[in-house]
Amino acid sequence: MEKGTISMDFVAEALLVARQRGLDIAALVAGTGLSPELLAIPQARVSPEQYGALWHALADALNDEFFGMDSHPMRRGSFAILCHALLDCPTVGRAIERALRFFALVLDDLSGQLRVDGARAEVVLADRGPPGRLFAHGTLFVVLYGVACWLGGRRLPLMEVNFCQPSPPNLAEYRLVFGNTLHFGAAASALALDARLLGLPVIRDAAALRLFLRQAPANFLVKYRSQAGDVARIRGLLSERPLAEWPSFEALAGALHTTPSTLRRRLEREGSSFQVIKDDLRRDMAIDLLCNTTRSVDDIGFALGFSEHSAFYRAFRRWTGASPGEYRGKTAGFAG
């Protein structure tokens, strides 16, 4: 199963208000697997478990599960209460509506509405004042969408995601989360899906919720990422196979019922290539193995297809800005 990672850009966004309020960041991240040294490496990546640990640390420090991004804090424990309140909803659509009413009660600056127009359903966000941060809108979408997918027991394919904010420098990271049908500078931030999905039954119970809450938010941060687009589709295909069985580009194109030249152009339109997809997946696998196992660096490099330690060292430094040993040292003491 694929182990995705999360950009340091999103870590910096999550920490922004804490920094502005003068909190001791080194003390805040202690025990999360994120050292101040790692935070200083812009191209570094973190595991969902590390980001989830940071989520809880920030919520504790700020007594706010929305990271201080709203003028009214979302007090610690609000997410658990929300999830309990959704369990007796008959359908995913009803759960989304109830969740949006909940957010309207606990947040002052940001609210949302579920709109259905024929075959299209949209969760549309509205700011009660100046436009909010892109990260605030994105975080609300990730939480709402992740919980909705969990309640329905499946990924809910996204038709389109729009943000009212301008396109960010880390556009590729937002595409990784929300898919390729992503637009910025829209009239309103909106997450669209097939309206028929609203009728899916809620299949979770109290016992499942207890496990879900123990593992949240790490258990939904990357699990329900959009699978739309060729980049996500190819990444999914590769993650299902041992690295030694990854196909050639020509074989992959055949499996996708297209030609290599056509597939290459499609990947270029998504700002990627077959080599970039493979490198990103190997990077995420390396980070997972370094953070969550005791395997030696040489063993990890060999498992990822590097015949020489120096080749793995160079590749990992190019991917993350640190050597494998340095990276493991900066995340020491954390087990996801």
Rank of each mutant, 00 (worst) to 15 (best):
L281A: 14
A322W: 02
G305E: 00
Q275Y: 04
A322Y: 03
I300P: 01
R282H: 02
T293S: 09
Q275A: 14
H309A: 11
L289P: 01
N292R: 13
R314C: 12
W319L: 05
Q275I: 10
R235I: 07
I277Q: 09
R318G: 14
T294K: 11
R241P: 00
E250H: 13
G305T: 00
V297A: 05
G321P: 05
T294G: 13
Q275L: 10
P242F: 01
R269T: 13
I277C: 11
A244K: 11
G271M: 07
A253Y: 07
A303Q: 13
S310H: 12
A251K: 12
C291V: 15
S261P: 09
A315V: 10
G321L: 02
V276W: 08
F316T: 01
E240H: 09
Y313M: 12
L238W: 00
L256S: 07
R282K: 14
S310M: 11
V297Q: 03
S310Y: 08
R317V: 12
F316W: 02
R269E: 14
L252M: 15
L263R: 04
R283S: 11
Y313D: 15
E245A: 15
A303T: 12
E240Q: 15
R235Q: 15
S239A: 15
R265G: 13
F249V: 06
S239P: 04
G236S: 10
M285P: 00
L281P: 05
L304C: 04
S296D: 09
L290C: 01
G305N: 00
R265A: 15
S273D: 07
A253I: 12
F249Q: 10
H257Y: 13
R295S: 09
A303I: 06
T294N: 11
S296R: 11
T294H: 12
L252S: 04
L281W: 02
G301P: 02
T294S: 14
D280H: 06
E240G: 13
F312N: 01
P247E: 02
G236A: 08
D298L: 11
L238H: 02
S273F: 01
E268F: 07
W246V: 08
R295K: 11
P247H: 04
P247V: 12
R314Y: 12
A303M: 11
G254Y: 05
R241V: 02
S261V: 15
F306N: 01
A286W: 02
W246N: 03
L237C: 05
E240T: 13
A286L: 02
L281S: 08
A322N: 06
D299C: 06
E240C: 11
S239H: 04
R266E: 11
D299M: 10
G301L: 03
V276M: 10
I287K: 01
A322F: 02
L252T: 08
F302G: 04
N292H: 15
S310Q: 14
A244Y: 01
L281I: 09
A251C: 11
L263S: 05
H309C: 02
G236Q: 05
F316P: 03
L290P: 00
A311Y: 01
T259H: 09
